[in-house]
Computed example of a mutant assay.
Amino acid sequence: MKFTSTLLILSVAALSNARVLYVRQANSQSFTGALGGITATPILDSGDAKRPFAVKDATFVNLSAAVQRSCDQQFNACANAANGGTAGLSTAACSSQQDQCSAAGAA
């Protein structure tokens, strides 16, 4: 019985400590506009000190390049939706949103 209690306590402690190892990455993309519900691609830490910013599978040396890629991907998805006939979307509105996204990243 004592062995079972000890094992249970150690298991709980191990699980509690393992949870600390999971770290949620912060998104460096500050733009929150989302025409048609389409958000800008997240900019995450790549784990590579030489190319620290990641947008999907691409990595970048600096944040401004990552922001540009993120905003471009949002524009492409928005324009595809607009060209596909999604109500309330136009490529002009998507282009305007892209300008806003780029400006937010430059600020």
Results as ranks from 00 to 15, higher is better:
Phe3Thr: 14
Phe3Val: 14
Ser5Val: 13
Ile9Pro: 02
Leu10Asn: 08
Leu10Arg: 06
Ser11Ala: 15
Ser11Asp: 07
Val12Gln: 05
Ser16Thr: 11
Ser16Met: 11
Asn17Ala: 10
Ala18Ile: 08
Ala18Asn: 02
Ala18Lys: 03
Arg19Phe: 13
Arg19Cys: 12
Val20Pro: 00
Tyr22Met: 11
Val23Arg: 15
Val23Phe: 13
Arg24Met: 12
Gln25Glu: 13
Ala26Pro: 00
Asn27Leu: 03
Asn27Ala: 08
Asn27Trp: 08
Asn27Asp: 15
Asn27Pro: 05
Ser28Tyr: 15
Ser28Leu: 14
Ser28Phe: 15
Gln29Asn: 15
Gln29Lys: 07
Gln29Thr: 04
Ser30Tyr: 07
Phe31Ile: 00
Phe31Ser: 04
Thr32Trp: 09
Gly33His: 07
Ala34Glu: 11
Ala34His: 10
Leu35Pro: 00
Gly36Glu: 02
Gly37Asn: 03
Ile38Asp: 08
Thr39Glu: 08
Ala40Trp: 03
Thr41Arg: 02
Thr41Ala: 13
Pro42Glu: 08
Pro42His: 09
Ile43Gly: 00
Leu44Trp: 04
Asp45Pro: 05
Gly47Leu: 11
Asp48Gln: 02
Asp48Glu: 09
Ala49Phe: 10
Ala49Leu: 12
Lys50Leu: 14
Phe53Ser: 02
Phe53Trp: 07
Ala54Val: 10
Val55Lys: 01
Val55Asn: 07
Lys56Glu: 15
Asp57Leu: 13
Ala58Ile: 03
Thr59Leu: 04
Phe60Trp: 01
Phe60Cys: 02
Val61Glu: 11
Val61Ala: 13
Ser64Met: 09
Ser64Leu: 04
Ser64Gln: 14
Ala65Asp: 15
Ala66Phe: 03
Val67Lys: 00
Val67Ala: 00
Gln68Asp: 08
Gln68Asn: 12
Arg69Cys: 04
Asp72Pro: 04
Asp72Asn: 14
Asp72His: 11
Gln74Lys: 02
Gln74Thr: 02
Gln74Ser: 06
Asn76Met: 11
Asn76Arg: 14
Cys78Phe: 06
Ala79Ser: 13
Asn80Asp: 15
Ala82Gln: 03
Ala82Lys: 06
Asn83Gly: 10
